[in-house]
């Protein structure tokens, strides 16, 4: 016992960043439980040649199932593979990323295995043989410490919280055949729109705009700031502007949107309703730009600038470009 199994998520046969995070979290947990960590993943033919790097993050074995149907998320096959592997070895925990795939798959596994599931976990430890997980509830308005009645414990870890850390292990790739059964639901395509935006939950820097932006046309100014900040940055939005139809729901940060933990969060023209604060208060550094010095957003911001965002934001983008060019 003490071993941990990790679902290493792929899309089009490429590992996603959350796979490295989940392996890192799994390895740290396995260490506390006195075991090692293995990873499992699915992808199209050729995937096995591209995933040995998980060894860098501590995976001792990397189980790979290949099939043309695994180009996209294959829930039934992933579940079957997870179940098969749990039958081969004794595992104390299975760790999933709390991503679109992991949040769909982990509860399926919990129901199939009849085990407890802790989702969106932000900290992991051990108490004797079993894991103890810390997870937000009420969108982070409360934090729960949870334990599991029986092992294996099922856990999904919030993206951007467990930063990948290298700790080389064997990373031995082993091909596994998943018994084919007709999939109950099949992903027949992935649509990414014109601009493949970095998801707000996975970005290192989030630039969010609110009602103070006044008009959806003005978002070009925020896009320019995102551009100045580089490839790790993406756009977010408050509920007010999503409800007004200015921005897509996928960008919404808050209790009925996404909960984010980036290194740097810009709240621009956002007053700071309770449901918005719940979605971004775990950001490491928060910058607020708002005309109203009394806006609640300033109570959670590390750095505030009081002023007209239509002047401050372009100046900020220019200053960031200027100092970046100096390096």
């Amino acid at each position: 016992m003490g071993r941990v199994l990790v679902y290493a998520e792929t899309r089009h046969g490429e590992l996603r960043a959350v796979a490295r995070e989940a392996v890192t979290a799994g390895r740290d947990l396995a260490e506390e439980l006195g075991g090692g960590v293995d990873a499992f993943l699915l992808g199209p033919p050729g995937t096995a040649d591209r995933v040995a790097e998980l060894g860098q993050y501590g995976a001792e074995r990397v189980f790979v199932a290949e099939d043309p149907a695994f180009e996209a998320y294959a829930a039934d096959a992933a579940l079957r593979m997870c179940e098969d592997l749990l039958g081969r070895d004794a595992y104390s925990a299975v760790v999933f990323p709390a991503s679109a795939q992991g949040k769909d798959l982990a509860p399926r596994a919990a129901a199939r295995l009849d085990r407890g599931l802790a989702t969106e976990v932000v900290a992991l430890g051990a108490d004797g043989d079993g894991p103890i997980a810390t997870r937000p509830m009420y969108a982070g308005k409360a934090m729960a410490r949870v334990s599991f009645a029986e092992l294996p414990a099922l856990i999904s870890v919030r993206p951007n919280v467990f930063r990948p850390r290298e700790r080389p292990a064997a990373g031995a790739v082993e091909r596994v055949v998943v018994a084919s059964e007709p999939a109950r639901q099949r992903v027949t395509g992935i649509e990414t729109g014109d601009r493949v935006a970095l998801d707000v939950t996975e970005a290192n820097i989030v630039v969010s705009g609110g009602r103070g932006m006044k008009d959806p046309e003005n978002w070009s100014m925020l896009e320019d700031l995102v551009d100045a900040l580089g490839d790790d940055a993406t756009l977010g939005a408050s509920r007010a502007v999503v409800d007004a139809g200015w921005r897509p729901h996928a960008e919404q940060v808050g209790q009925t949107g996404k909960v984010v933990s980036p290194s740097l969060y810009f709240a621009i023209g956002i007053s700071g309703a309770i449901q918005h604060l719940a979605g971004m208060r775990t950001a490491k550094t928060i910058v607020a730009i708002n005309r109203d010095a009394e806006a609640p957003i300033f109570s959670v911001a590390d750095f505030g600038v009081v002023g007209d965002l239509f002047e401050v934001v372009p100046a900020l983008a220019a200053e960031i470009r200027r100092v970046s060019a100096e390096v």
């Binding site: 919990a110 009849d114 085990r115 407890g116 599931l117 802790a118 103890i132 937000p136 509830m137 982070g140 308005k141 409360a142 934090m143 729960a144 410490r145 949870v146 334990s147 599991f148 009645a149 029986e150 208060r281 775990t282 928060i286 959670v300 590390d302």
Partner: peptide, 14 residues
């Protein structure tokens, strides 16, 4: 419940 809440706390203030 298979998942037990050992404790519930308000998050640390910033």
């Amino acid at each position: 419940p298979k998942l037990r809440i050992a404790s519930l706390e308000e998050p640390p203030g910033r």
